[in-house]
């Protein structure tokens, strides 16, 4: 035990003395959360809309009234058909709504500036909702769990999924490989210390660092970003700890497969970071992916973590709803850990 303690102390001293990495590690999660929480938003507000009406009646007046009070739109004004193209081109309007009345029936046409497809899609959907069927019976949509449709809510689990891979997998693999490169790993291996003790001594400090970051991120999510606090917090923490251990196993496996720091960085980043960003559902919804990519995403731990975290943090569902994710992540952790330890023992 004293040996393990001195190995942990050694690693902790290395982490703490590397000020730059330390600051980046602690500041980056905060910055990312704030950035995705506030600055980067897929919500669409104040869509500048013009309306073209060929004949006013009660229905068209109702729709225009709705537009004026709706916070998603800012009503630019009633314009002539011939002006629409110029307004859209100059950026003075982002959407145009044509209301035509034919034999007492009002039909709506929507034209949106799709140079930003995300906001165009959202704007079109809002407008459709506004004009659907009889304008008197404007479709009512309830948005459950995230009534204001805040994208910050959606991003928090994704950011956490990414940060832990970044810190655990990349930092651990680089630090183990650097010991191999410097040869200090050999010094430990010729000593009576067991390889397993060396590895635990290497992993524990990064585990503790990750726990600190987890605490910071949860604190921020529930205060600054205003996620609703609920009894699921404990489950969130437990799931995150499991995910941290899984990420550490990935780092350990990478360090057993490569022999220099640059490859460790590249393998961790390309093989593990990119899929987390692209395929885990963090940014792009999994349901929109081609079937093949959907299958691949099943192999990405972050997918299950993020999905469970959304259920727990946003939907505030009970533990029983995330048992599947827990089981899958648990199995993945066990498999990765067994593989990594086996590799390390046979070829330290």
């Amino acid at each position: 035990m004293t040996i393990l303690r001195s190995l942990i102390r050694k690693e902790a001293l290395h982490i703490v003395r590397d000020r730059r990495t330390m600051v980046i590690t602690l500041v980056m999660p905060v910055v990312l959360l704030l950035l995705f929480g506030f600055a980067i938003s897929t919500e669409v507000n104040n869509v500048r809309t013009v309306v073209v009406v060929d004949r006013h009646n009660d229905q068209t007046r109702d729709i225009i009234e709705c537009l004026q009070v709706n916070e998603y739109f800012s009503f630019v004004g009633l314009v002539a058909d011939s002006d629409v193209e110029r307004l859209l081109r100059d950026g003075d309007a982002e959407a145009a709504l044509y209301l035509r009345t034919d034999v007492g029936l009002t039909s709506a046409h929507i034209v949106v500036d799709a140079s930003n497809p995300t906001s165009a899609q959202a704007a079109a959907a809002y407008l459709q909702g506004l004009t659907e069927g009889d304008a008197k019976k404007i479709a009512v949509t309830y948005t459950l769990y995230n009534p204001q449709m805040k994208s910050a809510y959606n991003f928090v689990p994704g950011i956490m999924g990414m940060i832990f891979i970044l810190i655990c997998a990349i930092m651990t693999s680089v630090s183990i490989v650097s010991e191999k490169e410097n040869g200090t790993m050999d010094l430990l291996l010729v000593s009576p210390v067991k390889p397993t003790t060396i590895i635990i001594g290497k992993l524990v400090p990064y585990f503790l660092l990750s726990c600190i970051i987890l605490a910071i991120m949860l604190l921020m999510a529930y205060t600054v970003l205003g996620l609703p606090v609920s009894y699921t917090v404990m489950t969130v923490a437990a799931l995150s700890l499991l995910y941290i251990i899984l990420s550490l196993s990935i780092g350990l496996l990478v360090s057993a497969l490569v022999s220099d720091q640059v490859s460790a960085l590249i393998v961790s980043a390309v093989l593990f970071m990119l899929p987390v960003i692209m395929l885990s559902g963090m940014i792009f919804p999994i349901d929109n992916m081609p079937a093949a990519l959907q299958w691949i995403s099943c192999a990405i731990p972050a997918r299950w973590y993020i999905s469970a975290m959304r259920k727990l943090m946003i939907q505030r569902l009970e533990f029983s709803h995330v048992i599947r994710e827990f089981a899958i992540l648990g199995a993945m952790t066990a498999a990765l850990l067994a593989l990594a330890l086996g590799k390390f023992r046979s070829n330290p």
Binding site: H14, D186, L187
Partner: peptide, 28 residues
């Protein structure tokens, strides 16, 4: 046995005293 090499000598990021203590502890 004891082992030393030119390249693999000590932990550069630790002090002399910390290195002595670490390896002495490792050897029980």
């Amino acid at each position: 046995i004891g082992y030393m090499s030119q390249r693999f000598s000590l932990y550069e990021g630790l002090t002399a005293g910390e290195n002595i203590k670490l390896f002495a502890t490792v050897y029980g």
